[in-house]
Amino acid sequence: MTSTVPPRPATREEIAVLARNAGLDLPPEIFEELVQAYGNIEPMLMRLRRSRDRADEPAHVFDPRKFMPETA
């Protein structure tokens, strides 16, 4: 299994960078809420990074027919 992210919790500085990349310029008290929330979801994200066949497709496969105009 390859992983692009080390299996350790992000630091506050790393979370701040992620927040900035998301366009979030947060006051200190709201940043604290984000740090707490990210601590809860980060283990989920790490568990999702499993070895898969390269050809495994995600669930949202594109269907071009959906964009055809309705015909009378």
Partner: peptide
Amino acid sequence: KLLRSRVMVGGLVRAEDYVQAMRWRTELC
């Protein structure tokens, strides 16, 4: 406060994580 936490943290999910979750959804389904 509760919604704010849930929305903000979604902005920190990387595209790779979202695609991996969708691939995992395929397997589970």
